[in-house]
Design a binder for these strands. Structure first.
Ligand SMILES: [Mn+2]
Ligand SMILES: [Mn+2]
Ligand SMILES: [Zn+2]
Ligand SMILES: [Zn+2]
Lengths: 164, 164
DNA sequence: GCGAAGTTGAATTTCATTTTCAAGATGCAC
DNA sequence: GTGCATCTTGAAAATGAAATTCAACTTCGC
């Protein structure tokens, strides 16, 4: 699952992890839940990648840090992270839910290759403006939108024109 | 599942059904499959509604015409219709696959209420242009895109501000 | 009509997601 | 620090839409 990096975020720093954890902790307190080592480990692991991870994939990464953490806890923590804005779900239409972290990330969209599953991130202000415009027009209070482009990447086109 | 009608297609005519069936029949022949009464009934039923139907919902409608037609056949026929461009999948993010027919329909997008599930269709040329532009920029051969806006409709906002 | 090849629908399987539950951890009150 | 109500955890089970299987049936080229 390749992914071209087209903005300029450095690898996450210790400081950023701490700040993100504070956001989580405040959220937990607000809704009457408790801090746990598992939740912190999962958040930290999640911040360390810029990939679009399935629960299963994140679980595998988390297990390298603490083999005792179960799939269910990763699953539940991702929901919590989405609640407090640290994660968002991205549907690549491949039948599984993927998440990406939203801490210090510019809002962006994805173009996905339907052959190999790789994706490119791109930025477009227009799409967000369209959300506002259409919401106003039909009297919806809009909360979010999804926009994905599907196609075949250059690599895959080369491969299929030059078969083995 | 309400849906405002914002373009001007009349109810499907007998003539249109015939034309759409010809498209299906040509497709079947092309890929070495066979015409059946079930497939024709399913296509006809599908064309008669402008809703965004799950396989289950379409199956229920089809059964009113021919109670012997099974869920599996509806499921498989929807795939065939998508293959020949007569249907397209629309993901409203409610966990089930929905289809709408694409015979004599203007391309459009959807805004979905996350409270009641109702949807509004809207038209935007810009979105299609953006697909082209981004595809060119990153050397993808684009095939399609998805764009949905999520929010809360006027009805639902009224309801929640005036609780029983 | 014959027969090869495709179709059908009930039943089964698959598989990501969600729920359950009993044992363990957390954190507020004292 | 201790008590204890409440929340958390992870294995296992349940869920449910989607996909597959298979034996009986239909289609269609000859
Ligand atoms: Mn992304
Ligand atoms: Mn529509
Ligand atoms: Zn590719
Ligand atoms: Zn609504």
């Amino acid at each position: 699952m390749l992914q071209k990096r087209i903005d300029d975020q450095p690898t996450i720093s210790r400081e950023m992890v701490r700040e993100a954890q504070e956001i989580l902790h405040r959220h937990l307190k607000r809704v009457g839940l408790k801090q746990t080592a598992q939740r912190d480990t999962i958040l930290k692991t999640f911040l360390e990648t810029r990939d679009h991870l399935s629960t299963d994939e994140l679980h595998r990464l988390v297990q390298k840090k603490d083999a005792g953490i179960g799939y269910t806890t990763v699953y539940r923590t991702l929901k919590l992270l989405a609640e407090c804005g640290l994660a968002s779900e991205v549907a690549f239409h491949d039948g599984i839910a993927r998440y990406e972290h939203q801490y210090n990330r510019r809002s962006h969209h994805h173009m996905v290759c339907t052959e190999c599953g790789s994706s490119v991130e791109f930025f477009s202000q227009e799409v967000g403006e369209l959300e506002q415009e259409i919401g106003r027009k039909y009297h919806y209070l809009t909360t979010r939108h999804t926009f994905q482009i599907y196609g075949i990447c250059e690599e895959c086109r080369k491969k299929s024109s030059r078969p083995v």
